[in-house]
Design a protein around this nucleic acid. Structure first.
Length: 565
RNA sequence: CGGGGUGUAGCGCAGCCCGGUUAGCGCGCAUGCUUCGGGAGCAUGAGGCCGUGAGUUCAAAUCUCACCACCCCGACCA
């Protein structure tokens, strides 16, 4: 490729809509342009990176016997109604009607469509197991698209599905996918952490997420540097020591206008950890209120909460008032036995606590969890904070922001049962097929690779996904010898199918260097008059931090060496 | 959806408070001359429904209202 006729619209200034490094880089280097919130055009340079990533994914999927499909994006409402997701996907699904008024959607994922194919064309245990995948555009009407390509409404997903006759088979399919994922992320140059996660709307049992540590991410993981325990915050646990306290009688105290933990704690001169934080949530299925209790210095994690309660929402202040007779800030389950209570385990058996009195301007002290509150279930609902002890080995935990690049699920029979995908076993007995689901966000891989390899002005791409492996930079193409040498090297590399780009523009050196920095080829050959006088050419192996002047006669040999390692 | 912010030339911004000539600056773009190993210098030039609509006014980029778009922070996901 020649820069002179390539479309690579670089930008000197950072577009103001971009805050995170990958977004800035992609706009400045001319990889993408925004079309709508969360919808981007991918320009030639960006497309080269994405196709490289897809190529790696295809190779690794093929390697484990997973076969590529191409499924429709347009999908009928019927199918989604059968699986129950026409409703549960809610607003996140793009919906439309055809000219006859038939309801359809733009598929946000493809469990249903694959399961439908299985249900039609797989009959026997002899046909199983199968692993299928596709790399396809997905549409999700995200509540808030953001962070460049990290959270968008139209994106490429590699989604794979496994179909097995028994649980052990699913375990094996899952293992194969998991290992393929690790290879994919290694080849794309990402350092991933595999964490336990919540399966959320997908349903199913076990699942793990592949996370790249980055401050630009919008996920939080907890991990133990010692034993390797790692989990998404939404399922993470820790082992905080209980503080028991002494037995005291319950006593009502005046706490005028002290509504927050900080206020009450300061006013009564009692540590926040001695307070009980009582929150009221309304469960969506039966519309009943529930009390959620955590220690005063802790936060409730709504992800964990939903895992226990199902869908729920914080109660409105009026609802709290009606339930307890007091304003938010003065409430607790003390004396309200008819309301269900879920409490964090570190409160279990503790005493001498402070809680709301269910009367405005009053709290109660001397609360005894056992004596004064009837807890339905003790379960970890709190946000795990950094430095809390690991529940496995006791080491101080780390909490990090991450970007989710992959997610694998052991789905089980949720979709196959709903869609009637069954097989006959050796005895002619019918069983639902056991399914697994495995996703990768293709653009997110690109964004993550940038987050790790862009320093604000220059990019160095990982070799397997770089748009070009090597760039040739003749500094002054009007000088015959410079141009000739560049053209000669370019012709040679092209002949050998090396991914090469030649900046043959008659432009100033500074401009060409800056564009080369944004282009990010790991190998750069700088051909300038100054060095040429001494018979030298500059070879930069940027991903190895090497820069050397090599003799013209050694150039090709050195270049191929640089490309090889 | 709740909270915060921004819409003026392709990009980055000033002007708006306190209405009043042909709406400005930098970058980029075009042409010419000079320059030529890290986003050059000089000169000339093209490029604007001041987000949209309604209102107030003799007069609106500027004031009022509504709407729209985009960005950021929170709840969902690859």
């Amino acid at each position: 490729m020649r820069v002179s006729n390539y479309f690579m619209p670089t930008r000197k200034e950072i577009p103001k809509e971009a805050e995170i490094p990958s977004h800035q880089m992609m706009l400045r280097a001319g990889l993408i342009r925004q079309h709508l919130a969360g919808v981007y055009s991918i320009l030639p340079l960006g497309w080269r990176v994405l196709t490289n990533i897809m190529k790696i994914i295809r190779e690794e999927m093929d390697r484990i016997g997973c076969h590529e499909f191409y499924l429709p994006v347009l999908s009928s409402a019927d199918l989604w109604t059968k699986s129950g997701r026409w409703n549960t996907f809610g607003e996140d699904m793009f919906r439309l009607k055809d000219r006859k008024g038939r309801e359809m959607c733009l598929a946000p994922t493809h469990e249903e469509v694959f399961a439908e194919i299985v249900s039609h064309d797989i009959r026997s245990y002899r046909d199983l197991p199968q692993m299928w995948y596709q790399i396809q555009t997905k549409f999700r009407d995200e509540v808030r698209p953001r962070s460049g390509l990290l959270r968008v409404r139209q994106f490429f997903m590699k989604d794979a599905y496994s179909f097995d006759t028994e649980k052990a088979g699913l375990d094996e399919s899952y293992r194969l996918q998991r290992e393929a994922y690790l290879r994919i992320f290694e080849r794309t140059g990402l350092d991933v952490k595999v964490v336990k996660a919540s399966s959320g709307a997908m349903g199913g049992r076990d699942c793990e997420e592949f996370m790249v540590l980055s401050d630009s991410g919008d996920d939080e993981i907890v991990n133990c540097p010692s034993c390797g325990y790692a989990a998404n915050q939404e399922v993470a646990e820790s082992n905080v020591m209980k503080v028991y306290g002494s037995k005291k009688d319950l006593k009502k105290v005046l706490t005028p206008d002290k509504r927050t933990i900080e206020d009450v704690s300061a006013f009564l001169e009692i540590e926040p950890s001695r307070l009980v934080k009582s929150l009221v949530y309304i469960r969506e299925d039966d519309k009943k209120p529930v009390f959620i209790l955590v220690r005063g210095d802790h936060q409730v994690d709504e992800g964990k909460l939903e895992a226990v309660l199902g869908e729920c929402r914080p109660a409105e202040p009026e609802e709290v008032k009606k339930l307890t007779g007091a304003d938010v800030g003065f409430v607790s389950p003390v004396g309200l036995n008819e309301v269900e209570v879920f409490a964090d385990p570190i409160l279990e058996g503790t005493t001498d606590l402070v809680a709301g009195a269910n009367e405005d301007e009053y709290h109660v002290i001397g609360v005894d969890m056992q004596r004064d509150i009837e807890v339905k279930r003790f379960v970890q609902l709190r946000v795990v904070q950094a430095t809390e002890p690991c529940s496995v080995c006791g080491t101080s935990l780390e909490v990090s922001r991450t970007i989710e690049v992959g997610h694998i699920f052991k789905l089980g029979t949720r979709y196959t049962e709903a869609l009637g995908a069954e097989f006959l076993d050796e005895n002619g007995v019918s069983h639902p097929i056991i399914m697994g689901s495995y996703g990768i966000g293709v653009e997110r891989i690109m964004a993550c690779a940038i987050e790790k390899n862009f320093d604000g002005s220059a990019m160095i791409w990982p070799r397997e996904i770089t748009p070009f492996l090597i760039e040739i930079l003749p500094l002054n193409v009007t000088v015959g010898q410079v141009a000739d040498l560049a053209e000669d090297l370019y012709a040679d590399l092209s002949r050998n199918n090396v991914s090469v780009i030649l900046d043959d523009r008659d432009d100033r050196a500074g401009v060409k260097f800056k564009d080369a920095d944004l282009l990010g080829a790991p190998v750069l050959v700088v051909i300038g008059e100054r060095n040429l006088k001494d018979g030298l050419v500059e070879l930069r192996i940027k991903d190895k931090r090497i820069s050397e002047n090599v003799k013209i006669e050694d150039l090709k040999k050195k270049v191929y060496e640089a490309l090889d390692n």
